[in-house]
Every structure is written in structure tokens, then in C-alpha cells.
């Protein structure tokens, strides 16, 4: 069976199931809320569209277009959050000349709500992150690097909760092992902690303790590898409370977000948006206000 058709058919079927079985006229529209998650990764300081002379990417991509797209989505739905999964730095002379300053300024103007730390963020050492950081008007969330013995101590939240129309969205961040990717001088005293252990801790904290309705992981681990190297697909399979993994690092082009099963056998979405602003991921989570015996209503629908 053709995968795309399968997904399209499922889409129609599922919409029929949820909306059709719960006739909308029984519910006021404000009983529904849509949280729109937009995301990028591996921008690599591609602020402009790729040159028209570029044979592969001519005129496509770039942060300036992502910004325009994100703003238009946000106009349609104010409950839109824009995230980045790391490697904002390195890749065009804009970075060599202006370091992190310009990309942080532009991502702030584009309306990013949060980002996470990729391996190339270390390219100019820890000071190369610290110096331009005041230009980032959004947090860089990371949960598994320990910077406490470095000049970056206290600069990055381990998690953050966003509230949109009464819905709590908890976000945590995972960074890749640095030792084979970054020079030891640039790593300094940064400590890398096990991403899976961190993910399990963070998702339990955000969903159970902080009562988040949605838990999102911003990851720079990479989508998947041969062998047992930790990746987004491993995190997806081994966690139980994370709803969405927004990935990066492997510059993966995905036609569709990946739906897979978590450790509890429940659905989780894993996505990645190529690189250089060539793709913007978009996931809408639709919520319904929980009135009276809503769970019974849903249970009925499923039976």
C-alpha cells in the first residue's frame, strides 16, 4: 500500500471519527483549541534564500522566508509556537564575520519561542555562545548538558512551559555527544549527560509534576543511526510521555512527519525539517475542552 495514500486516508477517517462522531453543533467553537507547532533545524546561518545560481536549492530556503511563513501562520492562529532544533551557527560568511550576533537577532525578529543547542553552536568556543547570547530574545533549552563549571552556567533553562489558550506545553532539550564533533578546547568543562535518562526525567516532570497537556522534545541527536547510537527514534521508542520530538543534526528531508509508537505503545510524532530553512515543519495539535464526562464520550467514540 502506498504510504502517502495510507496517511491521507487515515487523515480523512480519523477526522470523521473525531469530528463526525462528536457533531460540532453540540459544542461551541471555543471548546476547541489548536496549538500549531512550527519548527526548523540546522539553519546554519542561512539567513537569505540560497543563491539563484545554486543548482540544487536555487532561490529556496533561508531564515527570511521561514520568518515570513511563520508570521503568516501566526496571523491565522495566535496559538502558534516556533521552535528550532539547533545548529543555528556556521555555514555562511554571515557567521564567520558576525559570529552568533546576526543569526540570534534575526531569529528573535522571526518570532522563535525557543531553540536548543547544536554541536556547531560550540564552533567559537563557550565564549562564542556567551557573547552573542544577549541578542537572542528566546531561550535555548537544554536538559542534558551541564554547564555549571563553565562561563555559561545558568544561561540555558532545562525546560520551559508555554501557555496558549489555557493549554500547557512543556518543552525540554537534548544535545548530542560533543567529544567526536567539537574540539576539546571548545567543549571546555561542559558535561554531557545521557540523553535518554534525561528525557525520561524531563517528560515525567513536565507531564506528571507540572501537568503539561503537551510535551515536546527539541533534539539535536539526529534522526536515526545504524547500530545503537542514541537518536530521536531511540528516544521515541524508549519514552512514554513525550508527544513530539523536533529533531536536527542529520539534515534529514522528510516528506511527512514520522508517526511511531512509544514505549507504552502510544503514538508519538518525530519530525525534522531538512536544513538551511529549506523546510518548515508544521504540526497542529487539536485540543478539546474537558467538560463533565468528556472521557466517556470519547471512549464511546472509539468503541
Amino acid at each position: 500500500m502506498n504510504r502517502r495514500n495510507f496517511l491521507r486516508n487515515t487523515g480523512i477517517g480519523a477526522a470523521g471519527l473525531t469530528l463526525g462522531a462528536l457533531p460540532q453543533n453540540l459544542y461551541a467553537w471555543d471548546d476547541f483549541a489548536t496549538i500549531s507547532i512550527l519548527h526548523t533545524n540546522d539553519i546554519h546561518t542561512h539567513v537569505e534564500p540560497f543563491e539563484s545560481s545554486n543548482p540544487q536549492y536555487k532561490g529556496n530556503g533561508g531564515l527570511a522566508k521561514i520568518a515570513a511563513l511563520a508570521k503568516s501562520y501566526r496571523q491565522k492562529n495566535p496559538d502558534t509556537l516556533l521552535f528550532d532544533a539547533g545548529d543555528m551557527f556556521q555555514g555562511t560568511p554571515y557567521f564567520n564575520y558576525f559570529k552568533g550576533e546576526l543569526i540570534f537577532k534575526l531569529m528573535s525578529e522571526a518570532g522563535y519561542n525557543a531553540g536548543t543547542i547544536g554541536n556547531h553552536e560550540f564552533d567559537n568556543g563557550l565564549n562564542g555562545i556567551l557573547e552573542p547570547l544577549p541578542h537572542a530574545k528566546f531561550p535555548l533549552i537544554n536538559s542534558n548538558y551541564n554547564f555549571s563549571d563553565t562561563i555559561l552556567a545558568g544561561k540555558f533553562p532545562r525546560w520551559k512551559i508555554f501557555r496558549q489558550s489555557g493549554i500547557k506545553i512543556g518543552v525540554y532539550g537534548l544535545g548530542i555527544a560533543l567529544s567526536n564533533l567539537v574540539s576539546t578546547t571548545n567543549i571546555g568543562n561542559t558535561i554531557y549527560n545521557n540523553p535518554l535518562k534525561t528525557a525520561l526525567e524531563m517528560e515525567t516532570f513536565l507531564k506528571n509534576d507540572k501537568k503539561c497537556d503537551l510535551v515536546i522534545c527539541l533534539s539535536h541527536l539526529g534522526l536515526r543511526y545504524n547500530g545503537n547510537k542514541i537518536s530521536d527514534m531511540v528516544i521515541a521508542a524508549e519514552t512514554s510521555l513525550t508527544d513530539l520530538i523536533i529533531g536536527g543534526h542529520t539534515h534529514t528531508f522528510l516528506e511527512q512527519p514520522i508517526e511511531t509508537k512509544n514505549k507504552a505503545g502510544k503514538p508519538i510524532i518525530v519530525n525534522q525539517a531538512w536544513w538551511g530553512g529549506l523546510v518548515m515543519g508544521q504540526i497542529d495539535f487539536i485540543f478539546e475542552r474537558n467538560k463533565k464526562k468528556k472521557e466517556t464520550v470519547f471512549a464511546t467514540n472509539l468503541s
Binding site: 487523515g11 480519523a14 477526522a15 473525531t18 483549541a33 507547532i37 529556496n60 530556503g61 533561508g62 522566508k65 521561514i66 511563513l69 489555557g166 493549554i167 500547557k168 507531564k207 501537568k211 497537556d213 503537551l214 508527544d243 522528510l254 516528506e255 511527512q256 512527519p257 510524532i269 519530525n271 525539517a273 530553512g277 529549506l278 523546510v279 518548515m280 515543519g281 508544521q282 504540526i283 497542529d284 495539535f285 487539536i286 485540543f287 478539546e288 475542552r289 474537558n290 468528556k294 472521557e295 470519547f298
Partner: peptide, 19 residues
């Protein structure tokens, strides 16, 4: 979640927008 929160997630849609 259901008994602790005001909202239930019922659906997710999305796609990758090629820029």
C-alpha cells in the same frame, strides 16, 4: 491527564512545508 486537565488532545495534523 484527562481528570487533571481542562483539555484533551484529540487530534494531530501536520506536514512539512517545502520552502
Amino acid at each position: 491527564g484527562a481528570c487533571k486537565t481542562h483539555y484533551i488532545q484529540t487530534d494531530a495534523n501536520g506536514g512539512n512545508v517545502v520552502v
